[in-house]
Nucleic acid binder design. Structure first.
Length: 737
DNA sequence: AACTTGCGTATTTTT
DNA sequence: TACGCAAGTT
């Protein structure tokens, strides 16, 4: 037996050694999930002599993929992971599609559109279809389309299903959007998952080949897979049935992005012969922390039962911080960090502050800056989303794929070449009448009766592009990029501008160039540009945590998943903030899982914090304590003065009784003015926080109630149509089940 | 093309 | 309240 197996507990070892047939590992927080996957891969290669290329390991983040690869190398010997197919769903399928997509009518040099690119394409489609963007927000449309794609519902089917007006419009947009993507020879993120499915349907032989090729399939974070990912994995595993999935249903927090928790809940329906292992031994947190987490998550109905067991002593109780507003909350967090640092030997980097929404980071930042507490915010704007980077990348994409109109429009007049909107309109018309791509139209512009000035400008642009195309044929990515900076002058323009902003952009472009150099040094393959672009489009974790840095980490709970910290502050624990507005019990359950994730990040200590008042959109709002605080076993929760919580004061309990909802008791919350309007509420039973259903507008939550009797009006926030003020007597509201 | 103004919107965001 | 985006202004 390979000696590294000694480092596993019994269940982990069994999971690693059960190499044949379907396996599901339910890995609770901190139970050594990554360890099991990496050891299994190492075991397959080192003990079972499986060739690395026969193993396909799919993750959700590049970071996870890189870590795994590295750990496999460490377990065996450097270089053993060579040939292993390990990466994110998106990057692995992008790679496969580069080879096979010509079979379904795309060019292998396709561009990959990120969500901003696809948004701009949708905007353009809506313009063409004369659908005003203020009627249906672009974001909403994008969400609808993405959701459809994630569920593998193609335009035809979507069209057939669309019942209401909005659905019809969305179907129309969806159809044209898909057509445009194809014309641009571009794939959006969702396409990277569904094009393989289309490929498998159209070319069963390819599927068969891949099924044969990938003997072992491993999937990390299985609870986060969506329908398309589920289907791809299922298709690929159909032959050998060696599918190994690891996940934790209790940490499923991405349903709003299409993740389907039923994939993990129903794994055994698809694979009745599956071996199932539950990892519940937790190596991260104290008993007390796990007691809190277990107690909370138990309240969810949709779950696979398991209770985390700590390998550690009981540790400290959780501390509840109550503040009169969010500023005071931030100050308190700062104070605790400072005193704990001084008196208990913690360092800044041992603390993390979590919040439900990004907007909450602001106060924390302000206070920390004043208090001189070093901090770092995670999840700010990605490097690759910066304008100058996107511009440079658009050049690279376009050089590779000149059907990519999105990229073309981005660069045609950047830097300014006197090719403005009017000229572009002419070119578009010209392309349309000649039934050609936009760039073909530009190439033929000499023949058209355009003004000489425009023809000159276009020639200049063509010269730049064609020169770069030539360099790309022989040269490295670095060569192309530096030639691009040179011939377009984008870097010297920024330098000349010489403002702090322009210099920051200049630095970013230099950073991109050094990344290209680094890439070119390590990748000699012929497909350099494609691989580089793949990496950029699908990368997120550009910001690396520097080991030696010492700062407090600030992040959303979502961003915290997978991380751990000695001391954790969970802030903004108020109704309607955490849990955030929810309309159904499923959504509340996801909020609860999110809270569970937050608590289980902590190794030694958790602070739960809420504020009685908080600014929302410039208005101070009265807040109610989150139900999650009350869900923590009161015997392990103390106040700042060290007292045990008496599980909520009597008066608070009374207020928080919800009368109109059948299923889950929800404490009512935030009343608009903060004043009491209880006399108004009694007549209809409506009050702020009541969840209602309107025949036209669908589900909503009452924000405030004014007046009584016949003249009573309610301000209601609807899930789909936003806020409305309605006369209660006409609105015919029903209480949501 | 660079400015201003006004409007709408304001959850989470692994790719 | 504040920010980003789109249209309007010079």
């Amino acid at each position: 037996m390979i000696d590294f197996l000694q480092q596993l507990n019994d269940v982990q070892r069994q999971a690693v050694q059960t190499t044949e047939g379907p396996v599901m590992v339910l890995a609770g927080a901190g139970s050594g999930k990554t360890r099991v996957i990496t050891y299994r891969i190492a075991y397959l290669i080192g003990e079972e002599n499986v060739a690395p290329h026969q193993i396909l390991a799919l993750t959700f983040t590049n970071k996870a993929a890189n870590e795994m690869r590295q750990r496999v190398d460490e377990l065996l010997h450097s270089g053993s992971s060579r040939g292993l197919w390990i990466g994110t769903f998106h990057s692995i399928f992008a790679r496969l599609l580069r080879n096979y997509i010509h079979l379904i009518g795309y060019d292998g040099n396709f561009s990959i559109y990120d969500s901003d690119d696809s948004k701009s394409l949708i905007r353009q489609v809506m313009k063409e279809l004369n659908i005003p963007v203020d009627a249906v927000p672009v974001n909403t449309v994008q969400g609808i389309i993405s959701k459809a794609k994630n569920s593998f519902i193609l335009p035809d089917q979507f069209h057939a299903q669309a019942s209401d007006y909005n659905g019809q419009k969305a179907a129309q947009i969806y159809e044209v959007y898909v057509r445009k993507l194809r014309e641009n020879n571009a794939l959006d993120f969702d396409d990277l998952l569904i094009k393989p499915l289309e490929l498998f349907q159209a070319q069963p032989a390819v599927l068969e080949q891949l099924q044969h090729y990938f003997r072992y399939i491993l999937i990390d974070e299985y609870q986060d897979t969506n329908k398309a990912q589920y289907l791809v994995a299922k298709s690929l595993a159909a032959k050998h049935r060696n599918i190994f999935v690891v996940g934790d249903d209790a940490q499923s927090i991405y349903s709003w992005r299409g993740a389907d928790i039923t994939n993990i809940l129903n794994f055994q329906d698809d694979y009745p012969e599956a071996s199932v292992f539950k990892l519940v031994e937790n190596y991260r947190s104290t008993q007390t922390i796990l007691q809190a987490a277990n107690g909370v998550i138990k309240r969810n109905r949709r779950q696979i039962e398991k209770e985390l067991v700590s390998r550690q002593s009981s540790g400290e109780p959780l501390t509840l911080l109550e503040s009169f507003n969010e500023k005071r909350e931030a100050e308190k967090v700062g104070e605790y960090i400072r005193t704990w640092k001084l008196t208990k030997g913690f360092d800044y980097k041992d603390f993390a502050v979590f919040y439900r929404t990004n907007a909450q980071s602001r106060v924390l930042e302000d206070i920390f800056r004043m208090d001189r507490i070093p901090y770092r915010i995670f999840g700010s704007v990605s490097f690759y989303k910066r304008k100058e980077i996107k511009d440079a990348v658009a050049y690279l994409r376009f050089i590779r794929n000149d059907q990519d109109t999105e990229s073309l429009l981005r660069i045609i007049n950047f830097p300014p070449r006197k090719i403005g909107e009017v000229s572009i309109g002419k070119l578009r018309d010209y392309a349309l009448t000649n039934n050609s791509s936009l760039y073909e139209a530009i190439l033929k512009a000499e023949e058209a009766d355009f003004p000489a000035r425009l023809r000159n400008a276009l020639q200049g642009f063509i010269a730049v592009i064609e020169q770069l195309k030539d360099i790309a044929k022989e040269g490295s990515v670095y060569d192309v990029l530096s030639a691009l900076y040179e011939s377009t002058g984008i870097t010297s323009l920024l330098q000349a501008e010489n403002t702090p902003e322009s210099m920051a952009r200049y630095e970013n472009l230099q950073e991109l160039l050094s990344m290209a150099r680094d890439f070119s040094d390590h990748n000699e393959g012929t497909n350099g540009l494609n691989d580089f672009l793949n990496g950029i489009s699908l990368a997120t974790d550009y910001e690396e945590v520097q080991e030696d840095d010492n700062y407090v980490s600030l992040m959303t709970v979502h961003a915290a998943k997978g991380l751990e910290f000695p001391v954790v502050f969970i802030t903004g624990l108020e109704e309607r903030l955490f849990p955030l507005n929810y309309y159904e019990s499923d959504e509340l359950e996801e909020e609860r899982r999110l809270f569970y994730v937050a608590v289980t990040r902590a190794q030694q200590k958790v602070f739960l914090s809420w504020a009685k008042s908080r600014y929302y959109y410039g208005q101070p709002q009265t807040c109610m304590k989150s139900m999650f605080i009350d869900e923590v076993d009161s015997s392990i929760l103390i106040t700042e003065s060290g007292k045990k919580q008496s599980n909520g004061s009597v008066s608070e309990k009374k207020q928080s009784i919800e009368r109109c909802n059948g299923r889950t008791p929800v404490p009512s919350s935030v009343s608009k003015s903060g004043g009491n309007s209880s006399s108004d509420e009694r007549s209809s039973g409506l009050k702020s926080g009541t969840r209602v259903h309107h025949a036209m507008f669908g589900p909503g939550i009452v924000l405030s109630v004014q007046g009584t009797g016949e003249r009573q009006k309610a301000k209601i926030k609807f899930r789909n149509v936003g806020e409305k003020t309605l006369m209660v007597q006409y609105a015919n509201l029903t209480f949501e089940q």
